[in-house]
Structures are given as structure tokens and as C-alpha cells.
Amino acid sequence: MSDSAQYSAAAEVGQVRTRRSRWERTWIELKKAPFTAWIGMAIIAFYLILAVFAPLIAPHGEAEVFAVPFAPWSGEHLLGTDQIGRDIFSRLIYGARNTIGIALATTFLAFLIGGGLGLVAAINRSWLDQLISRGVDVFMAIPSLIFALMLLSIFGASAWSLIVIIALIDSTRVFRLTRAVAVNVAVMDYVEAARLRGEGLGWVMRREILPNIMPPLVAEFGLRFCFVFLTIASLSFLGVGIQPPTADWGSMVRETAQLIQFAQFDIRAAFTPLIPAAAIALITVGVNFLVDWFLQKSSGLRDVK
């Protein structure tokens, strides 16, 4: 081959890719997304529509009581009524709004606390880091559901105490992850270069570190949302979470659970408690599918074909 050794820096072939706008790139990635990711996105979109437009979609009110408790499935009450005669189908739709709303608020709060402290600890790396980290170690030694049960027994169950308690417990996990990824970025040469340039702490945090830890944090947000969602559903199912008359899926399962014993007489009635349970499962499946794809993409560690 006749390869001349003539050298030009600008012509040097790197892994030069065509430049595309953010939207073009997103669209190209989306087109390559596996079907599980598409299912995930469809599920999440569906739930969001339900949550936002609940009053328009639901045929009856959230706490509207009808004459017949445990009414069978019918045209009037698509999924029948519950133990005190409320329309289950309508409560299911309102439940999307309440359960997702509370879980989202909790996750945001957890990230605000855990993420903020994690960043500070990662950059500071002194006694403050030691103090928070050891404290978090201790708190994480108590299983979160147990911790939540204990605190709820003290403060009583209400939507607000639920949000604050779960967010606090969950923020320990967020703290650990944020600190770990931020520490990895903080030791990079470009962070050292910024420090040698004389940049302040705020700039280093905002411009050098934060943009580079976003992908794992976004994925973690999805996973933590699932976790929070399941914890709240479990607590409600146990009767110490979201309290009536607010409709939520965990409590709905508990309230109608006894219907399952009549499966041999009315199979449809037996499905009634399973529907809100399935609604909980479906959204976590959706989020998990999406996060799984996102993780594979952003880590670049795709499985070898």
C-alpha cells in the first residue's frame, strides 16, 4: 500500500462523528430503542394522561358513595363498588393521580436532600463527608420499610408525614450514589485543571461535575421512583399509608381483598383486588424497562453480541 507518512493534525482521523443537534440524536436513539423501552414509554404516557385528566375521565367522584356495597361489574359500575359502595373504576383513575403524585413528590424531595448532600460530601471530602457518610451507614442498616413503619407509628399516618418520612429514608440511598459518582468525577484531570485555574467551588460543582453525573442520577431517579412507589403502595396496603377517603391503589387492594375467596362463584369479582395491584405492577414495569434501556445506553457497556 502506498501510505505516505505526511501528517496533518487537522486531517487526522479520529472517531469523528457527524454533528447532530440534540433532537436529531435523541430521535436516532429512539428509533434504535428495543421494544421493551417503547412499552415502558407507552405505559408511562398512559398513566400520566390518567393522572392529569382524572376528573374528566372518571365516570363518578372519588369518594362518591352508592347504595350497594360490593356491587358486581356492570355498565353503571364497570368494576363494581367497594365495601362501602364507592365506584372502583373511578377510584382506580383517581388513584393514579394520588399515588403517582405522592411518589413523585417524595422522590424529588429525596433527591433534593440526598443529591445535595452527596455533591457537597464528594467535593468537600473532609470531616463533613466522614460525618454524613457514617451517619448514612447507620441509617441504612435499618431496613427502609421497617424504619418507615416505626416512624409512622410515632408521627401517625398522613400524606405529609408519609412524603417526609419516606423521602428522608430514601435520601440516604440517593446520597450514597451521588457521592460515589461525584467522587469518581471529582478526581478527573479536568476537575483538577479547573481547580488549578483558580475556579471557585460553585463553578466546579455546577459546570464540571454536575453535567457529568446526570446520566446515572437520571437512571437512579427512575429506580428510586419505583422503589418509593412500591413502598408507599405496601404501606397503604398495610393500612398505615395513604388514608381514606383518598383513593389509592394499595389501600384498594386491601379493602377488596376478601373478594378473591369467591373466585369459584364470580371470577370477575375475584379480579377486582388484582386490578389495582396490577396497576401498581404495570407502572413499575414500565419505568424499569425504560431505565434498563437508558442504563445500557449511557453506560456504554452493552452486552457483547
Binding site: 419505583c226 394499595g250 387492594v253 378473591i260 388484582l274 396490577a278 401498581i280 405492577a281 413499575t284 419505568v287
Partner: peptide
């Protein structure tokens, strides 16, 4: 895919499905 799905299930969902299938039907 199966495990990713079942990870997302709350315990009581799995429990009631099992009750429905192996306990009552």
C-alpha cells in the same frame, strides 16, 4: 425480561395471584 417484570411486582400482587390460582380456583 421475565425477571425485570417480576422485580416490579409488589409482593401482595404476586401473593394474590397465587391465592387466586392455587388457593381458590
Amino acid at each position: 425480561v421475565t425477571t425485570l417484570t417480576t422485580i416490579s411486582f409488589p409482593e401482595f400482587f404476586v401473593a394474590y395471584i397465587l391465592i387466586l390460582l392455587l388457593g381458590t380456583l
